[in-house]
Design a protein around this nucleic acid. Structure first.
Lengths: 120, 120, 120, 120
DNA sequence: GTGGTCTAGACCACC
DNA sequence: GTGGTCTAGACCACA
């Protein structure tokens, strides 16, 4: 991944990236998350920005802190991430998409095609 | 509609609302768009914010100005709005939705249900 | 209040101070909270530090944001602050105090005296 | 007891635990304090952290060192611990608790109940 | 005017 | 080594 300069804050993109790594099992339960300084170096961002991403994940219960040892993936991480995404999808994305489809006369079949063609 | 205090700029929400009114034929071709003052009063926003929404629609060719008389829906308004929405849908919304559906294990049927249940 | 240089983070002390102002009705419901820049100037701290205090209160639902206008005291602010304090008291302070009292042989009467002598 | 990952430093929690053991006579005067290695193993902490707890107790005169034999509970241990705790209680805990009780409308009776129900 | 993001760099306690 | 706090200063979008 590269950090793209769109309107999404960098710290948010970093948190999303780490969440993705967890969902895709690149980071397992109780595995150590890269340190703030490592993240900052890897993505060439300031340590404070990396820290903010970590704080975001921590406050959501996705990672937990062992003092002086860094952050680790919590057991419930996967569930929390999925629940958050599902909530976001149901409440925001889906209604917006449905509305747009009706307005534009897009059929469910077109979406189904895209769905079936999807490669990760 | 009420103006929500989420991440979407208020002026953008206003522009979207007016666009929707045009697509839904609540505002017809060459019909007068509510004045900046009316919009500001109706939605309880700052006049500058309402003005910014009008400017956005105007710069997109969706509305046009008659000096001293206000703004009016252009003949191509519907086409422009639909084209913009379609572009947005295809390039951003759809890929994101498809990806999320796969990640969360949401089937096309669930979306179809929402689609069929849709009331404007 | 002056910001004391103990081990409590400045941003936490600032948030506590604002919470106290709310409980003591110096800040009423829907009243504007001083801006980040004002707080920073008043207490002679960096704007980022003031911002962090505001974020803390906001994430707790004690204040809410009106875009471009600043932060305002939420209606439930008082309830939330009291609930948080009560939780803190019941879960942490009280058990610790009770244990210490037993260990030191301090009677409830001594505490009662202090309680009755209390001036705000 | 388990070492909790709250704001209190782990070495401090360890020192408190050993102090408690002394006050509760689980460790008697001139009795040997568990070795740094034992403490580290028992509580699953780093040896350096355990060492820091020992140093803290030692510098307070609560335990003393016999070269090559380890640390032992000093005769004055109980007095020192009690004095420290009393100071802490009077200066910090009590005023804070009294203030919180008034703010939250907690009566002395509630505290008395907890006090009477206390089991070590 | 308002908040919000980001950088660079310092300093600290803790493990 | 780890996180965490703080400062100074910049830049931006939004109302």
């Amino acid at each position: 991944m590269t950090i793209i300069n769109n309107n999404t804050p960098i710290y948010q993109q970093l948190a999303d990236k780490i969440s993705d790594d967890i969902v895709e099992k690149k980071l397992q339960s109780d595995e150590k998350v890269p340190s703030v300084r490592e993240i900052a170096a890897d993505y060439e961002v300031n340590a404070n920005t990396a820290m903010k991403a970590i704080e975001l994940l921590s406050s959501n219960g996705i990672i937990y802190n062992k003092r002086g040892m860094g952050y680790f993936v919590s057991n419930e991480a996967d569930d929390i991430i999925r629940a958050n995404k599902k909530k976001e999808f149901i409440e925001n994305d889906l209604p917006k998409v449905i509305k747009t489809m009706h307005q534009l006369g897009i059929s469910i079949n077109e979406v189904e095609q895209e769905f079936n063609n999807y490669k990760n």
